[in-house]
Nucleic acid binder design. Structure first.
Length: 218
DNA sequence: CTCCCGATAT
DNA sequence: ATATCAGGAG
């Protein structure tokens, strides 16, 4: 596990590597962001960003999503994958916004997670990115980076990972480091071919050193 | 836990 | 061919 001093070094190094890390899902408001994050489950941001421009041109308000047949919405998001469940969730989500929230995306995490298709991770993204609340959304990248680097234990659940990160990182740095960890995981500490040879954190990364030994002897 | 699912990288 | 992608519902 990383020591306090090492965590400071990791955070500073990531800040140097990705100084302008931010949400890469294109959106113009909280509603579009919510839809985009729901769509992004098990899909790349790049793919979602190919679909959402046309989608947001056609569907501007919650009413627009429920005023078309489910099959039509399914076809409009088909390329992203998991399209049947996502289309259904989006229509339920929009009905709930209209019925319970005056057509507006609520700011409270407790209310956000009640929406169809919105779990803890999506709620954290929305509160953080759209409403400026400190939060650490643990997605596949944050989880992988945290475990490889030793912020937490390999067996920890995503909720445990989030709790540990919140405890070990100052609250005013949550949102920035959250995005930097995503960039670090997406572009450097990748799942399939992590760039350990050029990693400035290799010396304190147990997983990285293990991988280097493996490739050296192969 | 399984299922949902197409696009892309390896 | 297979693994992975800003996960969540049942």
């Amino acid at each position: 596990m990383l020591k306090k001093q090492e965590i400071r070094y990791v955070l500073d190094t990531m800040a140097e590597m990705f100084p302008e890390a931010e949400c890469e899902l294109t959106h113009k408001n909280a509603f579009e962001l919510t839809i985009a994050v729901v769509l992004s489950a098990q899909a790349t941001d790049a793919l979602v960003n190919k679909v959402t421009p046309g989608l947001f041109e056609k569907y501007k308000k919650p009413e627009d999503y429920i005023n078309v047949p489910l099959e039509e919405l399914e076809q409009d998001i088909r390329r992203i994958g998991l399209f049947r469940s996502k289309a259904k969730n989006i229509q339920k989500l929009c009905r709930s916004l209209i019925d319970n929230h005056n057509g507006i995306v609520p700011q409270e995490r407790d209310e956000l997670v009640k929406l169809a298709g919105v779990g803890r991770k999506t709620a954290n993204v929305v509160t953080s990115v759209a409403f400026g609340e400190p939060a650490i959304a643990v997605d596949t990248h944050v989880e992988r980076v945290s475990k490889r680097l030793g912020f937490c234990r390999w067996k920890d659940s995503v909720l445990e990972v989030e709790k540990t990160l919140m405890k070990k990182i100052p609250e005013n740095e949550w949102s920035d480091t959250h995005h930097r960890m995503i960039f670090f995981g997406r572009y450097h500490c990748k799942s399939q071919r992590p760039n350990c040879p050029e990693c400035p954190l290799l010396e304190l990364c147990r997983e990285g050193k293990k991988r280097m030994r493996k490739t050296a002897s192969a």
